[in-house]
Design a protein around this nucleic acid. Structure first.
Lengths: 165, 165
DNA sequence: TGTAAGTAGCTTAGCGCTAAGCTACTTTTC
DNA sequence: GAAAAGTAGCTTAGCGCTAAGCTACTTACA
């Protein structure tokens, strides 16, 4: 690691090393970079989806319905479980998306407590454009890595996630 | 990739592949895992710091002062710039930390607009214990990876961050 | 030296989330 | 079939953040 290649996370670990040389700074460097990458790419995705009139969180709702396949119908409960969101948070997202005409809520014919959430024609059209735009942001973020590097990274992340999930 | 090793992110990419086989799902798998790892580890760190009476965000403030070295003094502006936070958010964190007796605000002798934020004795003691506990959480999260795997992951993340920062 | 521009930290309104609790309905148990 | 327990989605209060705008002060320039 030459002086010139140091980044913002190196600056932090260097500072820690100077005041607490007893600490192993490798773990904080790994997760510091993971956090910064996650944040930077999410911010970029947010801006991208905003151009389609939805937030990243709202996109996730429509995307979950889209990838569930025809007839693009799930209950609010299934959605909030998948998106790791409370029912209160889900209600808010569904309210906005329904008002925007991207999905609709209908009573569940088999359980009068429940609802069925379905993508509208307009929602389907929007998600199929927006998902491609989002993927392009992610592809661009990975463009500095060679194919085999992406492969290696993917494998290491899978292994790491297995240990924290 | 055998059937048994599939994880939650594989389930998502498999669904996408079924309904949109034209999409390249490799980028979304990489960032999906990065997001989930970041969230899972941050949640665990939050719980760890809570045991010391501070949130993760409040910890970050005291940690930034700590690693700046003696006399552990920075301006609110320096802190909010380092932590990528607005001045309003910083005011709130400083209010709580000052009330908790972990730091104090003093007028800047050289600039009557400014303040100097300094760790208290109590704050210094707390941060030196809490930072070790936080590092242990991160170390444990990496424990499933061999030394050379951590090394490789670290290098790939550095390269990826350089392309998104 | 007077004025304009810049920068300090704080305040307020608004947003999206969680946690707790509600009503309505279904399922289980006796 | 009645009572108890569980589960559906929604409402509310509260939290932490941002964006915008405030006052107070410093710096740069004519």
């Amino acid at each position: 690691m030459t002086e010139a290649n140091k980044d913002a996370v190196d600056a932090i670990t260097d500072q820690w090393h100077a005041v607490r040389p007893d600490l192993d700074t490798v773990p904080m460097a790994v997760f510091g970079r993971i956090n910064r990458i996650a944040r930077a790419v999410s911010d970029e995705m947010e801006r991208t989806y905003n151009r389609y009139g939805v937030s990243l969180g709202e996109f996730d709702v429509v995307a979950t319905l889209r990838r569930s396949g025809a007839p693009y119908t799930l209950s609010p409960r299934q959605l909030s479980a998948t998106l790791m969101l409370t029912s209160g948070g889900m209600t808010g997202r569904l309210d906005k998306l329904e008002k925007a005409g991207l999905l609709c809520r209908n009573p569940d014919p088999n359980d009068r407590r429940g609802l069925q959430v379905t993508i509208t024609e307009r929602g389907l059209k929007l998600i199929d454009e927006a998902v491609a735009a989002g993927l392009e942001v992610q592809r661009a973020a990975l463009s500095g890595l060679a194919g085999e590097e992406v492969e290696a990274l993917s494998g290491l992340l899978r292994k790491l996630m297995a240990g924290v999930g």
